[in-house]
Design a protein around this nucleic acid. Sequence first.
RNA 1: CGGAGCGUGGCGCAGCCUGGUAGCGCACUUGUCUGGGGGACAAGGGGUCGUGGGUUCAAAUCCCGCCGCUCCGACCA
Length: 440
Amino acid sequence: MRFDDAPTGRPMRLSAYFLPLLKESPAEAQIVSHQLMLRAGMIRQSSAGIYSWLPLGHAVLRRVEQIVREEMNAAGCQEILMPAVQPADIWQESGRYEAYGREMLRFEDRHERAMLFGPTHEEVVTDIFRRCIRSYRDLPKNLYQIQWKFRDEIRPRFGVMRGREFLMKDNYSFDLDFEGAKRSYDNMFSAYLRTFKRMGLTAIPMRAESGAIGGSMSHEFQILASTGESEVFYDAAFEELDLLAPDLDVDTIQRYYAATDEQHLPDACPLPPERLRHGRGIEVGHIFYFGTKYSKPLGAAVTGPDGEDVFVEMGSYGIGVSRLVGAIIEAYHDDKGIIWPESVAPFDVALVNLRASDTGCAEVTGDLYAKLKTAGVDVLYDDRDESPGVKFATMDLIGIPWQVVIGPRGLKAGVVELKSRASGETEELSPEAVVDRLAG
RNA sequence: CGGAGCGUGGCGCAGCCUGGUAGCGCACUUGUCUGGGGGACAAGGGGUCGUGGGUUCAAAUCCCGCCGCUCCGACCA
């Protein structure tokens, strides 16, 4: 066993990789992303709506998380980490301790102090803010974290898409006035469009209810998928629109009609019927402006330019990181398995040695492996002594974007095969050419 | 929480109705062959039948309680 082949901390030889695959789908998995995550050895259920992430799933989760982090940083937000376990008293201050209901997991510590496992963090972040910030000159601020949340859903389902414990990116903006808050809101709005796009997803921003978070301005970001949980209505223009086009500003996008079913009133819909589309959506993000809903009861105020104290204007912004992993699979799969977009794939390339026992094959594959590794390519090397069919099925199931197939047949002609998981297209190249292609 | 269903080896299931030696496929172990799409043969290992009680000479099977999981509905990233 070698451990030096894993700069990322993961073994890259499949024979050493912890990848418990399933040929059949467990009965409890109802939708394709859940089935595939179980079959591909990404997750295992611990209890209802609570999962362990195994190496392959964890790798994808981390990549999704990293994209979110990079986009938040690029949007001027600063990362923090708040406690998962929170004291109840700040929730009593905000008035949500009673309002939140049984979704909140409550318990007592050994001193019989009321505690809870955080379902969201408005109270905590507002508490931090009120104790640290005094002046309008410290505004605006936008803080985020990527943190496990717990919401004791009545009925968890769909694997990680609707778990009780889930990884969420949540951030919180603080501004002096409404204009500032609106700027923060719009800034997050466009950051979200960029974030989802990087994962290969088109998320349609929809007018939404603000629910338990409360507030007056709110958008949900929905990915269209037949297995989505909510019914959504939207302008056919979204099917053509490039939401990231430089000449398209946030106000313009927000004027296109799109709404979830709670918000959509058929009689009041401004769209002509021929432009109204409806389908099902997976909610992957939700942004809220809620003004002083928390700053007022918790007393988060700054001194303004005129010397008067004002409660800060706040917004909060969530992205379901663990849910996105499932959502991406819903969008990218076929009957053989997952088809990862390159930006979130657990590995860039899989080397499939069809004949592990053949010295020539092992030599060429080992050489490819070393060269790709040196070039910084993330490689999974299938060195198992399995039949070709098993190897192909494994790779198609776990969905690595590029497969390099090394077999005795090709090597006679001095070539290996480069296959795209997405298109299924295959190309015969010399090993050197493959390295150039993949390392380029 | 209301309604429905399911718990039998790691996974998928049969057996339960009509009580009497726990079974099949996949996976796993060993060996031989095989080798470009989940290969073949042979020999093996692994199950307190979710759990507690009850009925019975005898319970996976019948009865009751509990626990867990899933599905349909109302809530949410």
